[in-house]
Design a protein around this nucleic acid. Structure first.
Lengths: 196, 196
DNA sequence: GTCTATATCATGATAGAC
DNA sequence: GTCTATCATGATATAGAC
């Protein structure tokens, strides 16, 4: 029944499948993407996908957590490079804008995955590690006197909320300007809002 | 084959179905809700649903535009009651917070409907009438000298972005505080960010 | 206009050869 | 570990009685 052993590299298929899945999920949506379609796009058989992943949801989950880990890594780098809350948070905003332009599919998937009815009982975005890290940066800024004392949740949401809305607008095609060109203006508004 | 004529009131079924659909969509998601389930919840037959709506997507669409119209109506009232951009926008933020607490299902559905893979080729939220109206209020504020001159999209996103993030967090269960209690703090941040 | 019953179809997941 | 072929399920949408 089989045809190609095709054992190219170990763990290679996993990555190939995830990349194909991300592309299809971003383009047509999770529910409008079938497993055979992923298999075709990844040039892999359906059986192989079910060998590497428990089910379709598991593919989405692996994708989600992989991307979140990547983001968390970026935040760690930023934390090392910058000291003040101001510099750290500005770097984060710049990074998010850049990521949106460079890998819109990843951004699209991360932003909306939780609201898309798969991954039923997983912690929501706002309690995800990346968001918690951002909040920690803002709180540190309060301790350092850079940021006005306030509810950390409110302050963090206010600082980054505008940027996230712009990212959403950009992904929806409601915004023609590349985001990095709006960074200065967006940062200005966000920071003014919470600065001490 | 039929059993109950049950013709209670004209146009009554439509509303009943929409209410049931909203409830189920918000709870289990659009794709995890079947038409028979909607029928059962609405105490109506499947055939009746297909008589009143073209298909399942049409139910979602009717729901979406109905809710958007309601929101637009609220904005119109606010525009009449208040003159300045400051007062108008603050009233909007308060109204959004209130709506989230009073009718979280509606808010949930409006916020995420566009990102949920149905309603494929409809204008995205950011170009929706309500959002455009909010932008218009902000622009008017610029003309009046209340709001710092800036890209209207950026300013509007910054002003309301924090509130929207809090709403999302609240809907995700990541926030225990009722939103109205955070209004002052959230408004303070948003307005500071864009005030002249 | 409303109902029940059913046709049609696509999907997720599995079985089993190689 | 990878493949092909198939099953079983459950959905959408329709047909047709009343």
């Amino acid at each position: 029944m089989a045809r190609k052993p095709a054992n190219l590299e170990p763990g290679k298929i996993r990555e190939t499948v995830l990349a194909a899945a991300l592309h299809l999920f971003a383009m047509r949506g999770y529910f409008n993407t079938s497993v055979p379609e992923i298999a075709r796009a990844a040039q892999v058989s359906v059986g192989s996908i079910y060998h590497h992943f428990k089910d379709k949801e598991d593919v989405a989950r692996a994708l989600y957590y992989g991307l979140m880990d990547g983001l968390q890594g970026e935040l760690a780098v930023i934390a090392e490079r910058h000291e003040s809350a101001h510099d750290r948070c500005r770097a984060i905003m710049a990074m998010l804008f850049q990521l949106t332009e460079n890998n819109r599919e990843a951004m699209e998937f991360m932003l909306h995955a939780k609201h898309r009815e798969f991954l039923p009982d997983d912690p929501p975005v706002c309690s995800s590690r990346p968001f918690a890290t951002m909040r920690a940066f803002v709180e540190a800024g309060m301790d350092r006197g850079e940021v006005r004392r306030a509810d950390p949740m409110v302050a963090t949401a206010s600082l980054f909320g505008g940027a996230i809305r712009l990212i959403t607008a950009r992904l929806d095609g409601a915004l023609d300007t590349p985001l990095p060109g709006l960074l200065d203006a967006c940062w200005e508004c966000g920071w003014r809002g919470i600065a001490a």
